[in-house]
């Protein structure tokens, strides 16, 4: 189970876990292959993400990617947040085993859904 210490730390101390009472963007996505779920709630004001919270169910990478995503996007403008890539998320959790990179994809998709722009990667 080659998980990084950063990833394990996110599991032991998840950042921004929960839901925002005053969220104005909420999205939830499920990975159809394994059933992992990620729910994201954002408070966006003046084109900027003021606050982000997540809930997640599934394997450790899914939980850690949700946690890291909220850290990465808080304070960014919506346009900046849309440029956050899978690779950045993977780097921020200290790397992922190849067969677990779908956890980062789920994070990106959920973010894009929340922001309101479904984005398909080929």
């Amino acid at each position: 189970m080659p998980y990084s210490n950063i990833l394990k730390d996110h599991l032991a101390r998840p950042r921004n876990a929960g839901e925002l009472a005053d969220a104005n963007r909420v999205a939830e996505q499920t990975n159809p292959a394994c059933g992992d779920r990620l729910k994201l709630s954002l408070r966006v004001r003046g084109g900027r993400i003021e606050a982000a919270r997540f809930l997640a169910y599934g394997c450790p990478p899914t939980l850690a990617c949700g946690s890291v995503l909220t850290e990465l996007i808080e304070g960014l403008t919506v346009d900046e947040a849309l440029r956050v890539s899978r690779a950045e998320i993977i780097a921020a959790v200290g790397g992922l085993p190849a067969r677990k990179t779908h956890a980062a994809a789920l994070a990106v998709e959920t973010l894009h859904q929340a922001i309101g722009q479904i984005h398909r990667q080929v």
């Binding site: 599991l11 998840p14 839901e19 779920r37 997540f54 809930l55 169910y57 949700g66």
Partner: peptide
């Protein structure tokens, strides 16, 4: 508890 707190199923 730590994991349930962030589980959408639990919420």
């Amino acid at each position: 508890e730590n994991l349930r707190r962030l589980s959408p199923l639990y919420q």
